[in-house]
Every structure is written in structure tokens, then in C-alpha cells.
């Protein structure tokens, strides 16, 4: 078990490094010189050359990346080109906000998606199933920036119940979490439905029913066996949520890493982009690692 975990962790390292290097390469190959963006109308060739030297952009990509790695090992991810703030500080402030939003979104996604998906599966092909599937299709078709603005109009402008944007109280979390959660819930409903239906087709379910087990008990066994594929989906949902957070954070002015990423890209803040990609990759890899490890605990049949 310990060997399994250690091996998985070690395998994650080249994945994360590879992602960061790929991004470092891509942003440097993309047209748009950070020095020109930073200097604006002051971008005379002399000023640009001086800023290149100051930021180390006059060196080759490999050299820059090796410097970056060397510092990263000591937890120094550099300083943002635009604000000169430590990248680690920026991430330390923004990341908890995104985690809060992602966590709340995941919670809503589970609370809505799980019961709906299970109900759809149990009473499949009935009116209930069709309407629930229809609702989830609606949820999937409505982009988060549209539902976000509609919610703002309704709950902030018309009713005045919730603040339009920003962060600071539980009230600020409601709409963004609903926006991102209902989108992923719609996705989740379909996955749950498909998984549960498939498990219900298995022989042990027929056996249990034949033995006279009451429906609640059958359901209990079905769900236990559906846990593993569902947990896998959850791990992937985390990726969806992290990506979708960019849009949600923009509409609701939620100061997380999504908003930081958009600004970093627009401002060609290469150092910050690399730091944010590193963190996002770590989060995604970490979430899936937890999912993998959880299999061992969820299914006694899996060898420790």
C-alpha cells in the first residue's frame, strides 16, 4: 500500500514538471513580448532591452526554465512581472478562495446531482427520468456566465438579497457556488444515472432481489458498488471545476486563481502563469491521487 502511494507520487512529479515546461515553452513562443506589454507607450527598444535583461528574458528558454526549477525547489516561484509581488504570496492569497468556490460547487453538485441521478436510474424511462434528464440537459446548455448574470439580475438587482460580486461573507459565495455547482451537477447527474443503471444490471442485484431483499437494501448494495466509478468521476469533476472557475470568477469578481490566470495571460506575466499552472497541475494530480488511494479503502477486494 505504501509502495503504491509512493510510486504514484513519484510518477506525478514528471507529469507536473512536463506540464510546467510545456507551458513555459508555449508562452514564450506565443507572440506578444511581456516587456512591450509592461512598458506600454514607454516601449522604446532601449527600454525593452533593459527590461529583458532585468527579467532574464534575454536568456534561452532552457536556461530560464532551469533557473526557475532551481528556485522552485526552494519554494521561490519568482516575482510577478507586473506587480513584483512574490508568486507564492499571490497564490497563497488567491488559492484558498478558489478552493472555497470549488468545494462549495462540488458540494452543490453532489447534493443536487447524486439524488437526481439515482432517482433517474431507479425510475428509468419514466416521466420522472425524462424530466430530470431534460433539466440536466438545460443545465449543461446554459453557460455559467449566462446563468451568473441572470442570477445577479434577479437576486441582486431585483430582489436585493445578495451582493452582485466580490467576496467577504457567506452571501457572496451563494451565487458563484450555485452557478458553478449547477453546471457540474448537470454533468454529474448523467454520469450517476449511467453508472447506477450499469451496476443495477449486474447479477448480484438479481440475486439480492430473488432472495427477497427489500428495495432499500438492494439500493444500498447497488450504491456501494457504484462508489468507485462515481469517485473517479468526482476526481475529474475537480478538473472541470478548476477550469470553469475562470469564468465564474470573472462574472462574480471572485478573487481566485482563475481571475489571476486571465490577468496573467493578458499581461504576459510569464512567471505568474508558470506558477499558476504549476499549482493547478498539482491540484489536479493531487485530487486524482486521492481518488486512486481511496479505491483501496472503498473496495475491500482491492489488494492493499
Amino acid at each position: 500500500m505504501r509502495r503504491y502511494v509512493v510510486r504514484r507520487v513519484l510518477l506525478s512529479v514528471p507529469v507536473v514538471l512536463g506540464v510546467v515546461f510545456a507551458v513555459a515553452l508555449i508562452v514564450r513562443l506565443t507572440p506578444g513580448d511581456p516587456a512591450i506589454v509592461l512598458l506600454g507607450q514607454g516601449a522604446t527598444p532601449d527600454a525593452v532591452a533593459a527590461l529583458h535583461r532585468e527579467l532574464g528574458l534575454n536568456q534561452s528558454v532552457i536556461v530560464q526554465f532551469l533557473h526557475y526549477l532551481g528556485n522552485a525547489v526552494e519554494l521561490d516561484l519568482g516575482r510577478s512581472y507586473r506587480s513584483n509581488e512574490r508568486v507564492t504570496d499571490i497564490i497563497a492569497t488567491a488559492l484558498p478562495n478558489t478552493l472555497l468556490l470549488t468545494g462549495a460547487g462540488l458540494g452543490i453538485s453532489l447534493t443536487i446531482g447524486l439524488p437526481m441521478g439515482i432517482a433517474s436510474a431507479i425510475w428509468r424511462n419514466t416521466g420522472l427520468d425524462h424530466s430530470l434528464t431534460g433539466i440536466s440537459l438545460l443545465g449543461l446548455s446554459m453557460p455559467v456566465f449566462w446563468t451568473g448574470i441572470i442570477m445577479q439580475w434577479l437576486f441582486s438587482f431585483e430582489l436585493g438579497w445578495l451582493p452582485t460580486a466580490g467576496i467577504g461573507s457567506w452571501r457572496h459565495l451563494v451565487m458563484p457556488a450555485l452557478a458553478v455547482g449547477s453546471y457540474t451537477a448537470a454533468n454529474f447527474v448523467r454520469m450517476v444515472r449511467a453508472t447506477v443503471i450499469e451496476v443495477m444490471r449486474e447479477d448480484f442485484v438479481r440475486t439480492a432481489r430473488a432472495k427477497g431483499l427489500r428495495p432499500g437494501g438492494v439500493l444500498h448494495h447497488v450504491l456501494r458498488n457504484a462508489t468507485i466509478p462515481l469517485v473517479t468521476t468526482l476526481g475529474l469533476q475537480v478538473g472541470l471545476l478548476l477550469g470553469g472557475s475562470i469564468l465564474t470568477e470573472t462574472v462574480f469578481a471572485w478573487p481566485g486563481i482563475g481571475l489571476q490566470m486571465i490577468q496573467a495571460i493578458n499581461g504576459r506575466d510569464l512567471v505568474l502563469i508558470q506558477g499558476l499552472v504549476l499549482v493547478t497541475a498539482l491540484l489536479f494530480v493531487g485530487a486524482n491521487l486521492i481518488v486512486d488511494i481511496s479505491y483501496v479503502f472503498l473496495d475491500p477486494r482491492i489488494e492493499r
Binding site: F145, I149, Q152, S156, T164, A165, T250, F252, A253, L259
Partner: peptide, 18 residues
Amino acid sequence: FKIIPEASSQAIAFGAGE
């Protein structure tokens, strides 16, 4: 100085008096 990146969010916040 409140940062609200999205134009319609700005309009809604303004209309709501925030």
C-alpha cells in the same frame, strides 16, 4: 476601488446601489 471585471456585473451592482 472595487474590481468587477464583467461589464454587466458592474451595471447590476450600480443599479442595486452597491
